[in-house]
């Protein structure tokens, strides 16, 4: 494992910690898209089916369980916790995420490495992860004002994607048979979605001002 991959995993983990912190400390999930969070649950459950079939390392197994567990906990809080669910901005979270699930699944049936149950679900999870942030980004744009922790959450998620691209570049040049075009192309698309957000994030950081997205 190279340093970029590790940095990617850590920023991914930090983004989840930031989100859990926001929900637990403020007992509020305002500004957070439940639809994006539900998509992440589907992404992790579909991708980590290999928990039952392949063992790669203790690190991988633990991280997979943490991602599945934390995403389930977040959705549970937003749907079931009495105080938290009252703060959910349902009227701002109207993205029709079922289309993303359907589209990703159809794409996985067409584009995959092998036509097996596990490989189809793996490709599906990759495509779905690429678009899963969209409901959240649309919600941020609609609400305009982004609170600090929500901004940090999306920033760390974007950083995770950026580090994974550096990791692939590194692996491409250091490993003889590195080819995984499905993951790399989807990863590029996914990272591109964050470009706009990053632009405004850095402007607000430079001006030491609150993060605001144009309507």
């Amino acid at each position: 494992m190279n340093i970029f991959r590790f940095a990617g995993d850590m920023t991914h983990l930090i983004s989840i910690v930031v989100l859990l912190l926001k929900i637990y400390a403020t007992k509020s999930c305002s500004g957070i898209s439940l639809k994006t969070q539900e998509l992440y649950v589907i992404v992790f459950l579909a991708r980590y089916l290999d928990l039952f079939t392949d063992f790669i390392s203790v690190y991988n197994t633990v991280m997979k369980l943490v991602f599945i567990g934390s995403s389930l906990a977040i959705v549970w809080c937003m749907r079931m916790h009495r105080a938290v669910k009252r703060t959910y901005d349902k009227e701002l979270d109207t993205f029709r995420h079922y289309f993303l699930v359907l589209g990703s699944f159809v794409l996985a049936l067409l584009l995959h490495e092998k036509f097996t149950f596990q490989e189809i679900f793996w490709a599906f999870s990759i495509y779905l992860e690429a678009v899963a942030i969209l409901p959240q980004l649309v919600m941020l744009q609609r609400s305009g004002n982004v609170d600090n922790l929500t901004g940090q959450y999306v920033f760390f998620l974007g950083a995770y994607r950026a580090f994974y691209i550096l990791n692939w570049i590194y692996r491409f040049f250091t490993e003889p048979h590195f080819s995984r075009w499905i993951a790399c192309l989807s990863g590029l698309v996914q990272t591109a979605f964050y470009a706009d957000f990053f632009y405004y994030y850095f402007i607000s950081w430079k001006n030491n001002a609150k993060l605001q997205l144009p309507a």
Binding site: R5, D54, I56, N60, N167, A183
Partner: peptide, 10 residues
């Protein structure tokens, strides 16, 4: 036969 590449990323 080529050994299958394990999906070692998260």
């Amino acid at each position: 036969t080529e050994e299958e590449e394990k999906k070692d990323e998260l």
